[in-house]
Structure formats: C-alpha cells, structure tokens
C-alpha cells in the first residue's frame, strides 16, 4: 500500500502522550485539539521526509546498522519488555508505536533496504561482521547452509528457476539467476535444481559466508580516477574475494559484536539519549508550530 510507511508518522509528532494527557487533565476546550492536530498536515510532504530521516530506527532499537535480523528481534523484545504499555502503562504507547514501526521495517528485507537507502546507509550492513543475512531472505529458520549462485559462471539458462521457482529468480538486468528466498522450496527440489545447472554455478555455502558473497556478487560502483574508471564491477572470483575481505574485516577491531550482550550503562544511556532526542525534536516542532498559528486562537479568547 502506497501510504504504508511514510504517512504513518504524520500523526506521531503531535500526539505525544505527554501532550495528550496534559490536555486531558486540564480539560482544555476543543480548540486545543486544533493546535494539537494542526501540526498534522503542517508536517506535510516536505517535512515528512526529514521526519523520517531524523528518526533513526537503528538507534531506537540500540542495534548497529549492520545487525542481523536476529539481533534486531532480540533488541526489540528486550525493549518491548521495558516499554510495552502492559508493563510501562499508557505512557509506553508512543514509544511502543515507534518500536513496532522500526521492527516492522528492519525485519523485512525490502523495507529495510528502502529505509537504508533513504538514510544513505546502503551496504553498511555488509561492511562489518560477516554473519549477516544477505540479500536473499530466509523462509523459516536460519540454517547452517545456504544456496548461492555464482553470477560470473551463470549462463542464465533458467534451469534452476524452472525447478525451484520459489527459491531462484532470474535477474533480467544482470542476465543471471540468483537466490531470492533461501529454502523457498523443499530440499528435494533444491537438490534437483542445483544438479540441473549445466555449469555448476549453484553452490551450497556456509551461512556465515553468504552475506559477504551476496554482497560481493552485486555489482559495486567502482571508484573512478580522473577520467578513467567509474561504472560498475564485481570481482571475477567471488569466493576468493570473500575470503580476502573477511580476512581484512577480521583484522579490524571488532567493536560491534557486543550489541546482543547485556547493555552497558553507557550504551543504555546512548540509546535513551537517541530516543529522547527524537522525542524532543518532535516536541520542539510541535511547540513552534503551536505558537505560529495557535497564538491567534488564544488571543481570540
């Protein structure tokens, strides 16, 4: 649905719970509603985009941008346990709405990619940590092995798509097959399709390698020098490239692996600050706008 993601935030800004209750308690007249919701369409189209950019789902959940869906899920559950209205009371409502939205987006590969793209975060998931789940999504639980199509070898015969249509798709732009859904078909079909490949370009790989391989097999923008270069490229031997890259990555200090461990006070504070910042920004926007055209209403009274 077209309006599923963006517009959903429009109402978030004005209906902050504190504001809401403040109005309820003081029993202000209906005109306060006007100010309250006056903001709704004020955020309009242009503001909507910036609103979305400001709200960092990763910070909200306290996970790194390259975290796996498992990490997102665990963080989501942990935060829900603290902030869900069942536990935190009605004031947890707004925060839980944010959490639900963040979770919904980050758990769905397509939405997450769009979100990453909108925040200029493309590909960061694959820079660090190789345990990521790659471009293909998983049907059912994550297993130890995964299917991978070596796009360099693939001749685009569509044989695998024919045998296991829920798993493989033909990427018409690149002219080769790739895995869309891991274990999208039953294992027998997967075996048949892997064997049916005339050039043996379908490989069973370790799950840990998959993210890197899928990342590397996507054509990458090539850095251009002067008038040369630019354009797109991908490594000729994706397996070797993956090995090299993972070696390089291991040499980098591993700083992000602690995300799923018990939160340190500093991390908790950082996350709280992030959500506080989001809230305060909304707050200030609300008040600014309320002043803008709300003043008139007050003066009339």
């Amino acid at each position: 649905m077209a309006a599923s993601l963006g517009p959903a935030h429009q109402f978030l800004a004005p209906k902050h719970s504190h504001i809401h209750h403040a109005f309820l308690n003081t029993g202000k007249p209906v005109s306060s509603c006007r100010q309250r919701y006056g903001v709704i369409t004020c955020c309009g189209r242009k503001a909507r985009r910036s609103l979305r950019l400001e709200k960092n789902y990763y910070e909200l959940l306290g996970v790194s941008a390259d975290s796996s869906s498992r990490e997102v899920r665990e963080a989501y559950r942990k935060l829900q346990k603290k902030h869900h209205p069942d536990v935190a009371g009605q004031q947890g409502h707004e925060y839980t709405l944010l959490l639900n939205e963040a979770y919904r987006v980050l758990m769905r590969d397509d939405l997450r990619r769009d979100y990453d793209a909108s925040t200029g975060r493309v590909g960061t998931r694959f820079r660090r940590g190789c345990s990521d789940i790659g471009y293909s999504s998983w049907k059912g639980p994550v297993r130890s092995h995964a299917l991978f199509v070596d796009a360099n070898a693939c001749i685009g015969c569509r044989e695998c798509v024919h045998h296991a249509s829920n798993t493989f798709v033909m990427d018409d732009e690149l002219g080769c097959a790739r895995v869309k859904v891991q274990y999208g078909d039953d294992e027998q079909k997967l075996e048949v399709s892997a064997e049916s490949c005339p050039v043996n370009c379908i490989h069973w790989v370790e799950r840990e390698e998959l993210g890197l391989l899928e990342f590397l097999t996507q054509p990458q923008p090539k850095d251009g020098y002067g008038v040369f270069g630019g354009g797109w490229e991908r490594p000729s031997n994706v397996f070797m490239a993956a090995k090299t890259l993972s070696k390089q990555l291991k040499e980098q200090p591993a700083t992000t692996t602690a995300a799923t461990e018990e939160e340190t006070p500093a991390q908790a504070k950082a996350r709280a600050d992030a959500s506080m910042k989001i809230k305060m920004e909304k707050f200030s926007r609300f008040w600014k706008l309320a002043e803008l055209f709300g003043l008139n209403t007050w003066n009339k009274k």
Partner: peptide
Amino acid sequence: TTMPARKELA
C-alpha cells in the same frame, strides 16, 4: 498488525 498500532491513509 502488531498492537499498539497507528496507520494513516489519505
């Protein structure tokens, strides 16, 4: 849809 929920359409 996961609750609490808030959605909007124009």
